[in-house]
Design a protein around this nucleic acid. Structure first.
Lengths: 219, 219
DNA sequence: TGTCTTCTCCAAAGATCTATGGAATAGTGG
DNA sequence: CCACTATTCCATAGATCTTTGGAGAAGACA
């Protein structure tokens, strides 16, 4: 093997990793798995994809060693292979944010109008510290269980309307979910605002919070 | 457009960026561009690819906004669109290093036997500080010019054998090049060692050094 | 304007990827 | 061992990507 071929083969290893992330459905799976391990069926249900398609794409991720599996009886749980994979995924977001002009409008089409006020990490931490804010995690309960921000209470989005009374009426609420491209917090803010609450949306999800080296409960 | 479609279209934006990096030849181009801007012809010459192939792949990178161009007369210079692209590339390396079992052997096939002793950032900085080491940049002169480590002298690899006398014979030499997957420093260490010099190879290239927030000259 | 240089566009053949229905497999519990 | 569940494997048609030769375009310069 000459050097030219050897170089190509070396770069091919890097390319394979990138290519494994070069597909919208697989990225959607990575996005979900970044919140904790999931079975194939659960992934199909939450993502809305065909089961066989989910399985095929998980195989592709596994061939690239980006996910690992654990068997429990007849069910197989997938998870990200490590924190570096989540970091790569976040860095991909950052690049796309500056490189992809249509991203903003695609995000708006998915998340709804950009009418929910954001709050940043630092302000949130100050406000949490002096107790003037209630932090609300609107992801499904399992995701909360597998890691959440310190001080957050869990009310999954689909129960939010029924459990409003668990949120103190006189303090501001800050909602968060999987990250800046997750609908849940956007929707939650709209629901709460319509009920007259003072509410903002945290710009981060757990992943971004962790990447900023801030503490996470039960990771 | 329903939410499912909107979500797919959102994730497609991320996927397009990943896909642009999902090809060995394009990664090779990114690798070169990470060292400074280059014309299409130069890229073809240094990478050994067909000119048309280089152009086509540069177009692909440009469609994804990962590179930017500048025209100078009849020549067009390409460069990375920003530091976040280099960071993504580095993070891709990190993931591949743990996810790709064959990477190590592919690297060895390209770089030669793993017989050159490495030195880390921290030790190098100490040794530079007390002046007990000569730092040698063996990349082409233009790359040195567009950014190099503080205190480094430039002797491009292809001139090394003829310019040995520029290196003090009695101090240890530390050679570096584009990064851990670049041949130049590996080859340079072998050349110098064969001439009886005490020489090690810096594990980093300029990119990694910069990513660690260490100062770079003329960036 | 004509010619030279440098690069991009076009076309096409070959390779690879993608989604999905249906069959096969592995574990579980009667 | 049989039925059942969760997942993977297989086959395939359609889509997308890749490389490269040859033609075209844009600037430089006489």
């Amino acid at each position: 093997m000459d050097r030219r071929e050897a170089k190509e083969s070396l770069f091919d290893h890097f390319a394979h990793v990138a290519r494994a992330l070069g597909n919208a459905k697989r990225l959607e799976l990575v996005d979900l798995l970044a919140q904790g391990e999931r079975s194939v069926e659960t992934l199909a249900a939450t993502s809305g994809m065909n089961l066989t398609t989910v399985s095929a794409n998980l195989q592709a991720l596994r061939r690239a060693n980006l996910v690992a599996t654990r068997r429990e009886g007849t069910r197989i749980f997938y998870r990200l292979a490590g924190p570096h994979v989540a970091n790569l995924y976040l860095q991909l977001h950052r690049v796309a944010e500056t490189a992809s002009p249509g991203l903003r409008s695609a995000a708006e089409a998915f998340l709804g109008p950009d009418d929910t006020e954001e709050i940043g990490r630092d302000e949130l931490r100050r406000r949490l510290h002096d107790g003037s804010v209630t932090l609300l995690d609107v992801r499904p309960a399992e995701e909360y269980a597998s890691g959440h921000l310190p001080g957050a209470v869990s009310i999954p989005y689909d129960q939010l309307a029924d459990r409003l009374d668990e949120l103190p009426a006189d303090t501001e609420v800050v909602a968060y979910c999987r990250g800046p491209y997750c609908v849940l917090a956007h929707d939650a803010v709209r629901v709460l605002r319509d009920r007259g609450r003072v509410v903002r949306r945290l710009a981060d999800g757990v992943l971004e919070w962790e990447a900023a080296r801030l503490p996470v409960v039960n990771p």
